[in-house]
């Protein structure tokens, strides 16, 4: 059976690459610290020696729109283009082509259906920055095959926080049952408190530092009870209108299980709290 080598849950700040590669005299003061933290975080994935990445993100109206927006979707293609024109324009993110892993995609899709998650699927999926940002930060060589999973944290009505947790638990079971000697890592991205296009955007901190502090505590200690007792769609809206991306971090913890992280770190940037979590559920790379 496959080994779950690591589970990573990370915020995805689309300006990381631009902020840390522009000429040093133009960089923001925190750029060097940001880069150090990201590179230390990257090491938590490298150390786990993964062969395949299950990547969790959310399409930000790049391939999918309100005429046909999937609640949960899995990519099943042999390879994936990544980065849309408007992401290159706004964030300076380059284009990539990632290899897929059709065998695990198919096994995952069937396993999800068997567990009551009737996923939409795509055989021609172009990935957006929710998946490419964590590739840039945690696997910049982009040299591993991926199985992309998209969730809806973006276009209401959204699934509940509990549903994201349960989906994570289901993905974990399926990875554990995958008949292969490969080492699989799951890497997903989302947000802590976040405001976009509203009055609390682009302030000195994220819109709700108190939520960020609690969320880091809950995730790093594996405390799903507190998350499910405290986090609702309404509470996330109160923390910032785009905070619902937190549910993808809940999903990632669902893959790991209700256990403490082996590694976590965070960085208070303008506009957002960046946070990085790694679990080694099988203790393999700890």
């Amino acid at each position: 059976m496959a080994t779950l080598a690591a589970v990573l849950a990370t915020t995805h700040h689309p300006f990381y690459l631009k902020a840390t590669t522009m000429p040093p005299e133009q960089q923001m003061p925190q750029a060097a610290e940001w880069k150090r933290k990201v590179e230390a975080y990257r090491e938590t994935l490298t150390r786990a020696k993964p062969d395949i990445l299950v990547m969790v993100g959310a399409d930000h109206f790049h391939q999918f729109f309100l005429d046909n927006y999937p609640t949960f979707l899995i990519g099943k293609a042999p390879r994936y283009d990544a980065t849309f024109y408007n992401e290159e324009r706004e964030f300076g993110i380059p284009k990539y082509v990632l290899e897929g892993h059709e065998e695990l995609s198919n096994f995952m899709h069937q396993g999800l259906m068997d567990r009551g998650f009737d996923f939409a699927f795509s055989h021609e999926l172009k990935l957006d920055h929710s998946i490419i940002c964590p590739i840039i930060t945690t696997r910049p060589d982009a040299d591993l095959p991926v199985v992309p999973i998209y969730t809806n944290i973006f276009a209401p009505p959204l699934p509940s926080p509990k549903r994201f947790w349960d989906l994570g638990r289901a993905i974990r079971e399926i990875i554990d049952e995958f008949p292969s000697d490969k080492r699989i890592a799951a890497v997903g991205s989302g947000h802590l408190s976040l405001e976009l296009g509203g009055p609390r955007q682009f302030k000195e901190t994220g819109p709700d530092p108190e939520f960020d502090r609690k969320a880091i505590e809950w995730l790093s200690t594996g405390n799903i009870e507190e998350i499910l007792a405290n986090v609702t769609h309404e509470s996330m809206s109160a923390s910032g209108n785009a905070t619902h991306g937190f549910m993808d971090l809940i999903l990632m913890m669902g893959i790991a299980g209700p256990i403490p992280t082996a590694y976590h770190d965070n960085l208070d940037l303008f506009h957002t709290m960046e946070a990085y979590f790694t679990w080694y559920p099988e203790g393999t790379a700890a």
Binding site: F61, E90, F154, A155, L196, G197, G198, N241, A242
Partner: peptide
């Protein structure tokens, strides 16, 4: 209108 579309 969706905040992400409008901001972008």
């Amino acid at each position: 209108a969706h905040f992400f579309l409008s901001l972008t």
